[in-house]
């Protein structure tokens, strides 16, 4: 400053003033803040664009609200929270769930849901924003509406977050349907913000680590015609987000009908939404009905157990009409070793 002429000092002051106006300050006094605060999702390199919602855009407060609700039994009267069935240690899945109608199925993991456009094994839901709406039913949370309104309105943190996230001054101003909808939307925001992209395989892709020999040979089997896993379990999500009949069943009744139960189209008989293989080592048992307890059983099935019927996906038919992969015991080990590189433990913590 010493070398500046006096006549220029006022210009410096003006520059500071202009800068203050032009630049957003790092810290805004609480009273001057406006809510909600937009949140930008960091999308890993190579991932598709997330399926964001124009009617439920990501916000810091919405995600925080969703995170708390997801982990809290405040929504239920039976002590359950979302994590009761979507357990972190199982990649936000759980071994099996038997519905009141008697259907036993493996619970789809909550992982990278923000990139998906169909949900549940049969694709019965196509919006993450409304996916949680059914969880208030007696079968799951057995929610008591009166109790729910009371708990949320009297809870200092939830009252604050509902106001900041959705400009709801008092949840008691909502109908029960509206409240459930906002809760589901907040949880959807939280789930959209949850991205798993740090498995050993991701690190291998980023050239941070090497796969060992067993894993690398398994990688080659997975991504070649030897195993032919890649057509349905496509990188980077390890699901093509399509419906396939993988030949796991030979008759089609009840839940085994899969997508057919939703669309009524004969061509959809036995089709299920391709599950992601990310964290597959944490989500046993496998297939829609959890019929396979281990990855070894799964690999054995694809190796020599695929049923042959007119509904099975053409991709399941290999060269010259054979349905067998004819993997050696070593190749099966290699394939499983590769599948385990898709585990992102950090995501579960």
């Amino acid at each position: 400053m010493m070398y500046l002429a006096n006549q220029n000092k006022h210009i410096i002051l003006l520059w500071v003033a202009v800068s203050l106006v032009a630049c957003k300050a790092n810290e805004t006094p609480e009273a001057a803040k406006t809510y909600p605060t937009p949140y930008t999702l960091e999308v890993p390199r190579g991932f598709p664009n997330p399926k964001l919602s124009t009617t439920n855009p990501l916000t810091v407060e919405g995600i925080e609200l969703g995170k708390r609700l997801y982990n809290d039994d405040i929504l239920s009267t039976n002590g359950r929270s979302c994590t009761s069935c979507h357990q972190p240690i199982n990649s936000y899945s759980s071994p099996l769930f038997t519905s009141w109608s008697g259907i036993t199925y493996s619970v789809p993991p909550h992982i990278n849901l923000g990139f998906k456009s169909s949900f549940n094994w049969d694709g019965s839901q196509n919006s993450l924003d409304t996916l949680g709406m059914g969880d208030f039913e007696p079968e799951f949370f057995n929610t008591d509406p009166v109790l729910l309104f009371k708990r949320l309105s009297e809870h200092p943190i939830y009252s604050d977050l509902f106001k900041k996230a959705y400009n709801i001054a008092n949840v008691n101003d909502l109908t029960y349907h509206e409240l459930k909808k906002k809760i589901a939307m907040a949880i959807a925001q939280y789930l959209r913000s949850r991205v798993s992209a740090n498995s050993k395989f991701d690190q291998f892709r980023r050239r941070e680590v090497l796969l060992d020999n067993l894993e690398y040979e398994g990688y080659v089997i997975f991504f070649s015609e030897k195993g032919d896993c890649f057509h349905c379990h496509t990188e980077p999500l390890f699901t093509d987000q399509q419906f396939h009949n993988n030949g796991v069943s030979n008759t089609y009744t009840g839940f085994n009908r899969g997508r057919f139960a939703i669309t009524g189209k004969d061509a959809d008989m036995g089709k299920f939404l391709t599950p992601t293989l990310r964290n597959i080592s944490l989500t046993a048992p496998y297939m829609h009905d959890g019929r396979f307890k281990t990855l070894e059983e799964v690999v054995d099935f694809y190796d020599s157990g695929v049923h042959a019927n007119g509904y099975v996906d053409p991709l399941m038919t290999k060269t010259n009409g054979e349905r067998e992969l004819l993997l050696t015991p070593l190749q099966k080990l290699q394939l499983i070793a590769f599948l385990k590189t898709l585990t992102d433990i950090g995501y579960t913590q």
């Binding site: 991932f47 664009n49 080659v220 890649f230």
Partner: peptide, 25 residues
Amino acid sequence: ATTENTNMQWPEPLGGGYHFLKMEG
């Protein structure tokens, strides 16, 4: 990296790139 393009990827162990055509039935 659209869903369509990633589903058309031709794996690196097979040379990498993209499927030019998929016709199934």
